[in-house]
Nucleic acid binder design. Sequence first.
DNA 1: TATATACATGCCCATATGGGAATATGTCAA
DNA 2: TTGACATATTCCCATATGGGCATGTATATA
Lengths: 117, 117
Amino acid sequence: MARAATTSDVFNAVAEPRRREILIFLLGRERPVTDVVEQLRIEQPAVSKHLRVLRDVGLVRVRRNGRHKLYQTRAEGMKPLHEWSAIFERYWSHQLMRVKERAENMAGAGEKETAKP
Amino acid sequence: MARAATTSDVFNAVAEPRRREILIFLLGRERPVTDVVEQLRIEQPAVSKHLRVLRDVGLVRVRRNGRHKLYQTRAEGMKPLHEWSAIFERYWSHQLMRVKERAENMAGAGEKETAKP
DNA sequence: TATATACATGCCCATATGGGAATATGTCAA
DNA sequence: TTGACATATTCCCATATGGGCATGTATATA
């Protein structure tokens, strides 16, 4: 084995800077591939490949219009990412964090935990 | 060139399923490396490497305590990810999306846009 | 000091994958 | 049907990197 099975999911898709650019670019408006190529200065094959990944994980939708294919970001596809990162939200305040820390230290006093000095 | 310069950032760090597990495990409570190894069933060297990545991008903090090193998730480090995904929030409603779409189609009627049928 | 414990790092391999070039596929227009 | 345009796919290469194994480093204890 090597390099964890790529589990091409939303987290992976969004890890690519280029794909993040594309997602923002396609947000709220349909655009043909050519627009992405021209505006973001990415080679056409590269754009097609990125769009393919984004489509596979449900982050963009496509619709054919004549010779063009119109892509648009599927914002709902971002929900898993948003919800996961939201788990950390309640710990953003150092105050809250310390409180929880103390509470858990007291609660876990009898466990096999490594005690703090 | 190949495989975009790894720009080891939060997005990349979180793309790894194992690292996501570790982040949740270390949330709100300090833990020695051994705990991660035992609870998540990951080999110790692997854990150390993941923790290294997470530390480099500011997603965990460390503190030495005797022979142990106590790791804990730095929730604030998740902010960039959370804020970025929040950009898509206002497009989650299909209703809203359609409205915006129509508005922009009207506004952009004279541009070089690929017109819709 | 010697030994055990806890963690980090180096090395190697296998694989995933972004980009470039060329080519294939699909659609419209003449 | 032929040609031009739009997009997708294939092939290849270079590199990044996760995991396993062995080893290095740091700290506490005997």
